[in-house]
Design a protein around this nucleic acid. Structure first.
Lengths: 199, 199
DNA sequence: TCAGTGACTAATCGATCGATTAGTCTCGTG
DNA sequence: CACGAGACTAATCGATCGATTAGTCACTGA
């Protein structure tokens, strides 16, 4: 491989890293190509050279998340014992907590009207729905629980905490630096969810 | 009152209405004074005449929400029977659903780093916390339920649906125009919450 | 009647935006 | 060694931003 090409790929990665951080922090509209260039320690024109337009750079950032997501997501289903809800919700919680940039980018995309964001997460809902139906047939979940709406409830418990953690800590006078706070919330939310759906 | 003053107040109201809609739609940064002026059918300079800076106009919009909120919120506590959780959560749900502009403005404010947004909602958490503690003493809620974290769970169930309704309908193939969808979700979420916390 | 106040407009300011241009420099290849 | 390709830079484009200026107009109170 060319030394030129190799350097170019390093530059592209640095630009993508800077763009991801900037888009996550400021959203698409307020993220300037100049700030991205400054963070990537390159020039603004070079970003246009590699990614053409700002929109295409944004889509490249999203694509990288999709690729990362496809690699990291678990491929095998969870066991069908009474703890399966806990393991699924915990998995979702840890995944979102490990990727704060993705969380913020999704929130920005929703407000900025970017509807075709994060296509990778499509499959998740179908697999989660299948888990719920299997658990219902196995008698772990009440029959009158709606499959899809229960998924919404589970997602709400995880995502709302991840998204609003700082605000909730301020409003409820919780210590945001408490290392056990996330675990305490998750245990509490899971306790309510499991008791709420079990037979 | 002056005819001048009266006309000025009408103009101020029209500007505030246009600003509220624009800030809710685009956020603070991306909302331009020119678009607000166009919606209010006035000139950009006139907005500066009445509200000085863009920041002060934004704060005037927030202040109007605070005033509206203080008027509309219920002043008397809910009854302490087993349905009290339902009535409180329903009240919160209806309140948020009736004010989509407030919901979006709050979401924008969180992402844009406006930490001192919506001071009016401070009191809500304290009163809701007091309700939970009273219900616990009355034996309606399990003793091992954490007061504050249960409030987070309740808020999550309501707010996540309000915020992500359109996205969730797309992801889960639900009909967003179904007039009974909101009610179905709320019933399902409340069923899980009530069963999850009751003794 | 007339001076003063405030609502309102047109024109324009400097700053910043995404994007483009022209050009330099460093390579691998014929 | 010569040359073309591609990585990269400096300078600048027109558009749009929030804000300001100078000025017109309607109305009130002395």
């Amino acid at each position: 491989m060319d030394r030129n090409t190799k350097r170019a790929e390093e530059t592209r990665k640095e630009i993508l890293d800077a763009a991801e951080a900037t888009f996550a922090e400021r959203g698409f509209a307020a993220a300037s190509m100049r700030e991205i260039a400054r963070r990537a320690k390159t020039s603004q024109a070079l970003i246009h050279h590699h990614f053409d337009t700002k929109v295409k750079l944004y889509e490249a950032v999203k694509q990288r998340f999709t690729d990362r997501f496809d690699v990291e997501r678990p491929t095998k289903g969870a066991a069908l014992d009474p703890t399966f809800i806990i393991s699924i919700v915990r998995g979702y919680f840890e995944f979102l907590r490990a990727q704060p940039n993705l969380t913020r980018l999704t929130a920005w995309a929703r407000l900025e009207g970017d509807e075709q964001a994060w296509g990778a997460s499509d499959g998740i809902w179908q697999r989660a729905g299948e888990w719920v139906r299997r658990a219902k047939r196995a008698g772990l979940i009440r029959a009158d629980v709606d499959d899809k709406l229960m998924l919404v409830v589970g997602a709400a418990l995880v995502q709302h905490w991840i998204d609003h953690r700082a605000f909730l800590c301020r409003a409820l006078d919780l210590d945001p630096d408490d290392p056990e706070l996330d675990e305490r919330y998750l245990v509490q939310a899971l306790e309510i969810l499991v008791r709420g759906v079990e037979k």
